[in-house]
Nucleic acid binder design. Structure first.
Lengths: 198, 198
DNA sequence: CGGCTACTATGACAGCGGTCATAGGGCGAG
DNA sequence: CTCGCCCTATGACCGCTGTCATAGTAGCCG
């Protein structure tokens, strides 16, 4: 899995996200990130004077923006946008990866939360911002579909929570069933929120 | 937080679970576990000849049995058992902890998944078993409430997934809102599965 | 050419990790 | 008493980590 982003800096951030989502933050070494990104080791202290913490925070930020950006793409792929359809697409991204590439990776934001929420304030804030941006993107999409404003954000939170939890369980069991179960059960319930008048 | 379980061995397993859920598996040292359990360091290699992997696996197993056991207690606390009521209790346990003790800890099973699912086969199996036992307990409770047999397990998976994801988000944001949102949104939907004839 | 900036290249350092080796106590059995 | 067993105690080892210090190269500007 050769990384071929533009500059070495971007490649390192991207590689960090990849390695974190596979091994966790603590088990991912700086040298490993540089090697994976095919970047010189000396560039680490040049581009990331804030050390590992900065690198991790940027990787989390990148992952959050990536997840939020995917929402718009999922919508574009849907002929008729519905909450359940969007959720199905979000889940599908993971079932596709797991069935094709294997159960090696999880969500880097979740990994950063587990490993650093209690020990690094700045990383915790980066994670919070990532979740917030992602939730906002989903909530906006729900609003556009006709979900009442006051329910858009809670439902977006529910969608992302269910997805994150199902990712954990799927990885643990090496089976996509938790993902498909969550999609099948929650999808219709989400759709029923569209026509709800109150 | 002095640990006062019965034997040193149990105390170490319990302490390991506590530390893992706070700092993650990789950031939790063996010496730290022994110190936290007020157990002699030499006992580590005596009780856990399989090393850290064994200790982590037992901590995960303990956590899984604990979570599964809580389900029965939650049911007993409900005057009239409903799926939404059960879920509300499951969530409540976490909001109570977070509002009283702070957002220091997460779920140890989730932590073990993130940190070890890709690197330790035995730990991944322990995590899988923990999720499986927990899901089974919830599914059994749902069946007893009248949820159709074929939907009991998928719904249990949805409940646990949502809870795990909401724990992540709540820790990240240092706010119980994700937990309350998930409970409020998912509860009624779960209750509607009871009277569903198909 | 010099001077400057951006980036790369290594080597060292101190700290901590899990694990192993070895030996010491406590105590019941014979 | 001695033996054997369970548990404890401690020191050492090696590998790896993040970080720093220092020196090197490339290329642009004047």
């Amino acid at each position: 899995m050769a990384v071929s982003g533009r500059g070495p800096r971007e490649r390192m951030v991207f590689s960090a996200a990849q390695l974190i989502r596979r091994d966790g933050v603590a088990s991912t070494g700086m040298r490993e990130v540089a090697a994976h990104a095919r970047a010189p080791r000396g560039s680490l202290q040049h581009y990331f004077p804030g050390g590992k913490e900065q690198l991790v925070n940027e990787a989390v930020g990148w992952a959050g923006r990536y997840a939020a950006g995917r929402v718009a793409r999922f919508l574009a792929a849907l002929p008729e946008p519905t909450p359940g359809g969007l959720f199905s697409q979000m889940v599908r991204q993971w079932t596709d990866e797991y069935t094709s590439t294997g159960f090696e990776g999880g969500c880097p934001v979740a990994a950063a939360t587990v490993d650093r929420a209690g020990s690094s304030a700045s990383t915790r804030e980066a994670v919070s911002a990532a979740f917030d941006g992602w939730t906002g993107a989903v909530a906006l999409a729900l609003s556009d579909m006709g979900v009442p404003a006051e329910r858009a954000r809670p439902l977006a939170t529910l969608m992302i929570s269910s997805l994150e939890g199902a990712i954990l369980m799927a990885r643990a069991e090496r089976d996509v069933r938790p993902l498909t179960a969550v999609s099948r059960e929650l999808g219709p319930l989400l759709d029923s929120a569209v026509d709800a008048t109150g």
